[in-house]
Write a protein that binds this DNA or RNA. Sequence first.
DNA 1: CAGAATCCAACCGGATACTG
DNA 2: CAGTATCCGGTTGGATTCTG
Lengths: 124, 124
Amino acid sequence: MRARVEDDAQGRRQVYEACFEPCAIEKGMRIIGGKWTGSILWHLKDGPVRFNDLARMVGGASKKMITERLRQLETQGLVRREVMDTAPVSVHYEITEFGRSALGFLDELRKWSEGLPQEIHADG
Amino acid sequence: MRARVEDDAQGRRQVYEACFEPCAIEKGMRIIGGKWTGSILWHLKDGPVRFNDLARMVGGASKKMITERLRQLETQGLVRREVMDTAPVSVHYEITEFGRSALGFLDELRKWSEGLPQEIHADG
DNA sequence: CAGAATCCAACCGGATACTG
DNA sequence: CAGTATCCGGTTGGATTCTG
């Protein structure tokens, strides 16, 4: 993970990194860093949650967003979708073991975020 | 952090969370979860880096993006900008102590991301 | 070198309405 | 309940050009 430093044909110093293209940080962020994604996963940690409950828990995200992020998490194997055949239909979303493996750093993020001074905002 | 469950006036069950509005996870993500932000911060962990070097290290981000994210990180106090009066001018970006407090989480993310199977992609 | 400025297509995501 | 469908304005962010 150390930087690679070399000089080009014109003798100018060039600095490269061992993490080409989407570096690990960036790659990870693209998976759980998206809007609502981390939050959704986090709210599943205590057990299965129904769609509308989840929407309320996340709070602020539209149903459209919740659905899209859940579908993404599902195809990535972080979340499992289970349809109970009741009437009216009930759908449970459950975090998988794999999804659970992300809870560690999400908790780190939570702790860091909660310790933040008020004057820090997402925008500038 | 437990969910609050109550029934509304019509007797329908409502589930709320102790994390109203931008919950901690979401808030944190909006600060370091943005495109390139985490990556930039990460690449400053070993010491000050010059603008163009940083751009190369992050790799893939345009100068415009690097600049915008750096300005954001600067006003949030995660990064310090230092102009050396040399000719041509040289600008160093350095992570602050506060910025360093986020490295724990970023490192956890990195480890998680590196252990990811190939078939997991940011898109679906 | 370290940006600032401009342009603009693509995507994002909220609002709303509708469905089985 | 658990979504889907459609509309559409706002934001994003890459490409390009220019500057002290």
